[in-house]
């Protein structure tokens, strides 16, 4: 079920503070965060975020049409290494 509009977007307060700080300093340095659950709001646009995926930080440059998604959606937590491929090696 979707989140109630009344409550607005959820953004981790700690992350919000970082963004405000970056905006004030108008710095374009990547913002490191573990807060995958934060929704991307219009304030995020133009910043680069290093989003933790459980192991490493994935750089995510936020553009306008990412608004409304969560940061975690852009930082995959699983890697799929392909099956098979033995035949090609032997050829």
């Amino acid at each position: 079920m979707a989140r109630s509009i009344k409550k607005g977007f959820f953004v981790d307060p700690s992350l919000m503070a970082k963004i405000e700080k970056a905006a004030k300093a108008s710095s374009r340095k990547p913002i490191q965060t573990w807060s995958r659950r934060s929704t991307i709001t219009p304030d995020f646009v133009g910043h680069t975020f290093n989003v933790h995926n459980g192991k490493a930080f994935v750089a995510v440059y936020v553009t306008e049409n990412m608004v409304g998604h969560k940061l975690g959606e852009f930082s995959p937590t699983r890697i799929f290494k392909a099956h098979g491929g033995m035949t090609r090696k032997e050829l």
């Binding site: 553009t63 049409n65 990412m66 998604h69 975690g72 959606e73 852009f74 995959p76």
Partner: peptide
């Protein structure tokens, strides 16, 4: 196309 362009989980 939008989902795929922004490279989010659903797009992938």
């Amino acid at each position: 196309k939008r989902l795929q362009a922004i490279n989010c989980y659903r797009g992938i």
